[in-house]
């Protein structure tokens, strides 16, 4: 009974916060709502006897992603206003699609025989660690290369200017600006 209540609370929180993420008018709010969703998911992981993943979720994922997102929001805003707009449009077709996807998913779930009760949990975090560095060692190594590449690339891309290039002189920039204006009109 208690797990049902817990599930209900987690599910409610998850869905509500997720809905706010996609409907909130203020981008900063959206990010914060996403933070709540991720934290609640960690709670769900605890219910599913995955404490290690839950801690990873909070420490790395929630912390990392939310911080990054906030940085992104701040770096790309135009005005000084704190209320950064997060608009939606063409919600109609999006709603239909997501409802249809949900329906399809639910239909498939109902058609598939799934276990009613979870077996007693026996695993431990140590086992999990062995699993990661055992058969999945190679994937782990490849992942490290990926992270390295992503980091290097992201830094280069987000860097302010190409450091090797000369910034064009003011005159050239004005000319270019004028040209692009001409092109537009």
């Amino acid at each position: 009974m208690i797990d049902r209540i817990a599930f209900g609370v987690v599910a409610l929180l998850l869905l509500l916060s997720a809905l706010r993420v996609v409907t909130s008018k203020n981008l900063v709010h959206s990010v914060l709502w996403l933070g709540l969703t991720l934290v609640t998911t960690a709670g769900a992981y605890l219910l599913l006897s995955a404490p290690f993943i839950a801690s990873i979720q909070i420490l790395l994922y929630t912390g990392g992603v939310i911080t990054l997102m906030l940085f992104g929001v701040m770096l790309t805003r135009r005005g000084e206003d704190i209320a950064i707009p997060n608009e939606s449009s063409e919600g109609g077709r999006a709603l239909i699609l997501s409802l249809a996807t949900f329906g399809l998913f639910t239909g498939a779930v109902l058609k598939t025989p799934l276990p009613q009760e979870a077996p007693p949990f026996t695993g431990s975090t140590a086992e999990l660690g062995r699993e990661i560095l055992g058969p999945n060692l190679m994937a782990f190594e490849v992942l490290s290369v990926l992270l390295l590449a992503a980091m290097v690339g992201a830094i280069v891309i987000a860097r302010r200017r190409d450091p090797g290039s000369q910034r064009p002189s003011l005159g050239l920039r004005i000319e270019a600006e004028a040209k692009s204006q001409e092109g537009k009109s």
Binding site: L97, A100, T101, L104, G107, A108, K111
Partner: peptide, 9 residues
């Protein structure tokens, strides 16, 4: 993807 899945299932 939705349509493919729906068709497939």
């Amino acid at each position: 993807i939705f349509a493919l899945s729906a068709f497939g299932i």
